[in-house]
Every structure is written in C-alpha cells, then in structure tokens.
Amino acid sequence: MPTDDRPGARIAQHRKLAGLTQRGLALKIGYSYSMVHQVEGGHKPASPEFAAACARALHVDVTTLTGQPYMTELQQDRLAELIRPIRESLDLYDLGADPDVTARAAPRLVAAADSLCEQVRAAEINKVARALPGVIAELTTAAYRTPATELWAALGSVFRTAHDVTVKLGFYDLSTIALDRMEWAAQRASDPVLAAVRQYMRGLVYHREGEHTIGLRLVDAGHRILAQGEENPASLAVAGQLHLGATVIAARAREADTVKTHLDEAKKITDRIGEMGHVHWLSFGPTNWAAHELSALTEMGRYSKAVEKAKKIAIPDSWPSSRRAHVLIDRGRSEMEIGRSEAALKSILKAREVAPQQTRYHPGARATVEGLIHQQRRTPDALGHISAWLGL
C-alpha cells in the first residue's frame, strides 16, 4: 500500500492493480472522471457511497478502501483488545454448555440481553463490548442446558448486539458471523420476527458493500419470513423497517422510483401503528421514517432537499443516542456538500457530543470532516481538533 493511507490513495492503488485508468473506473462506477480524479488526488473526500461503488467495481471489500477498522484509534480507546473475546464467543457457539460457566436464572439473562441492546443503542460501545462475551457464554450454556424459547430468543438478541458493535467499530467480517449466529438462534426460538430482523441487517451489510441488488433480495426474503407468521404490531414494525432499509439500499443505487415505493409502504405502516421503539430494539415509527428519508436523499446526492428535510425532523427525547447521532451525521454531510461549512461542523460536533465512539468510527463523519478541511482556506480550531480526534 502507498504511504498515503487516505481512501482516495487506496482507491488509486487498487485501480492500478486492476489495470484500469481513472476514466475506466469512472465508467464502471457511474461517476464522472473529474470525481475520480479529485478523490484520488485528495481534493475531495471519498463518500461512503463512492467507496462502495469503487469496491464493487474493483472486486475488493469496502474496508480495503476505507481503511477500516481504524486500529490506531481503536487502540487509543482500548477497544482493539475487546475484539478477540467477541470473536471467540461467536466461534464457540456449537460446543454446547460450557462446564466452567455458571449461568444466571433465565429472567436475569433475558434482562441482561435487553440491557446490552439498550446500551448499544445509547452508543455505549466500550461498555457493551466488554460485557458481551460473558453474556453470550452464559446464554449459550443456559440454552443448551434448558432449551427454552425465551433463552434462544435472548441469545439471538445478543448476537444481534454483537453485530451492532462490530459494525460500528468497522469489523464487517465479524459482523457477518454474528448475523449467522443470530439466524441459528432464531431458528431454535422459532421466531420469524427475529429471523426477519436478521434479513434486514444482512441487507444493510450488502448495502455497505455497494451490492444493492442482493440487499433488496434480502429485504424481500425478510418479508416472506414475516408472511409465514401472524400479523401483529411487532411483525408490522419489522415489515416497516424492512421497507426503510430498502429505501437506503435503493438510494445508493440511485433508483428513485424504488426509494419512493418503499417509503410509501413504510409510511402506510407508520400511519397504522405509530412509534414502536421496543420491537427487538428497533426504532420504527414516523421519526425513523423521516430519518430514513433524510438518509435516502443524502445517498442520492439531493443535498439541498436533505438539509431542508433535516430541519423538520423533531427527534423525541426518548430516541436512542445512536440513531440521533446518525441523523446528525447525515445532516452534516449534506450541509457540507452544499457549502454550509459552519452548519456542517456544528452537526458533526453535536454527533460527537451525543455518541462520541460511534461518531469517531463512522466513515460518513470522517468523509464530512475531510470535505470541510478541503473547503476551508483556514482551518478553524474546532475543525482542527475534531480532525485530529478522528485521526485524519
């Protein structure tokens, strides 16, 4: 790899290895030659959707181009040392009950699984990562010793939390393993809603890699799983969330009609059930609908419209910090793209205040700050500080 470790330099390196010119890569990914030239030259940031398009065209994982996981910052935050225990806990799922583990009573284990979900939504990543392997080991042992639907469902929940943590820290390969374990537990719990949540999250994995066709197929698979069970508020909330996931996946592919179709379907469900914040710890409802509309507009490059919509989103106090930060990062990205540098910096600083660890490892936050640096003739202290904090 080149000594310059920016995403743009990584893209240039892998483009050359693939035998492509900048114009050749531009044709493959549907961006202009000028955009490719500016990103590789360090004059524009590599947005998440641009990096995903390049990864798909160059047949590499998107993390190869973004440089994730960001090991220097992970080591500084004492998070790197927590990954191996999580990896081991996911790998040992099929060994049965651990004779060295004394599991708590089922109600306490279910409460522990719920607590981890709540904490990761509150963006307490370090705290969750430390507790996660132990809870997985206890629940796995308890479920093998006394098979019960509630224990298998709780185990599926902690595997979902493992996915959330590893995605936020940039270990996408490990997050995929966590989703496989989630399916394994969901089958034993006979829980179609949990299985459909897993398909939703799988769809977003492929979204990050720029594979929108596969992502949309996974969303459809989630709907088919839900159709096998009875309709209730929980299944409706997950169906709505599947539609919202599809809007972001389709937006990255610039399929505006598909985006509108799924937004409309999700809106029908929000009109029926309102806010549903505790269905497998999703945040489905009118607020999340508006947040996904903002994400879709940002993905499609409709930045002025995205900023206009962002101003109208009223986030309730009960909303989790992780979702609040995500909205602020999307807003900051759109503000940066239309030249509202001060507003964009305020949005990213607010995201750091709300969810510092999540913001530090979020590729969108990094791309926005990098873009702000290129726009400024003189770097304000606040921008310099957050740039150093992000490791740029």
Rank of each mutant, 00 (worst) to 15 (best):
M1G: 11
I11Q: 02
A12S: 10
Q13T: 14
L17K: 15
A18D: 02
L20N: 08
I29A: 10
S32E: 07
M35L: 15
E40F: 05
G41F: 08
S47V: 06
A51Y: 05
A51R: 00
A52Y: 01
H59R: 14
H59I: 02
H59A: 15
V60N: 09
L65G: 03
G67P: 08
D77F: 14
R78S: 15
R78D: 15
L79F: 07
E81H: 10
I83R: 02
S89Y: 00
D94S: 14
D98C: 04
V101L: 03
A103W: 02
R104E: 11
A112T: 06
D114S: 06
C117A: 13
Q119R: 04
R121C: 09
A122C: 04
I136F: 03
L139E: 04
T146Y: 13
A148L: 03
E150P: 00
L151Y: 05
L155N: 00
V158Q: 06
A162D: 04
H163Q: 13
F171T: 06
S175D: 08
T176R: 13
T176Y: 13
A178E: 02
L179N: 03
L179K: 06
D180M: 11
A186T: 04
Q187P: 11
Q187E: 15
A189Y: 06
D191Y: 05
A195V: 07
V197I: 07
V197K: 01
R198H: 12
R198C: 12
M201S: 12
R202W: 13
T213G: 12
G215K: 00
L216S: 08
V219H: 05
I225S: 01
A227M: 12
A227K: 08
G229A: 11
E230N: 13
N232H: 08
L236E: 10
A237R: 01
Q241A: 13
H243C: 08
H243L: 04
A246E: 02
A246C: 07
V248T: 11
I249Q: 08
A250P: 08
A251N: 06
A251H: 10
D257V: 12
D257Y: 09
V259G: 05
L263I: 03
R272V: 08
H278K: 05
V279D: 02
V279R: 05
W281T: 00
L282Y: 01
W289H: 09
L294C: 05
S295W: 06
S304P: 07
K305H: 13
V307S: 08
A310Q: 06
S322K: 00
R324I: 08
A325H: 07
V327P: 11
S334V: 03
I338N: 10
R340P: 07
R340L: 13
A343V: 08
K346M: 08
S347Y: 06
I348G: 00
L349Y: 05
A351T: 01
V354K: 05
R360F: 01
H362T: 03
G364L: 04
A365F: 00
T368Y: 03
V369C: 00
R377G: 15
R378G: 09
R378W: 09
G384C: 04
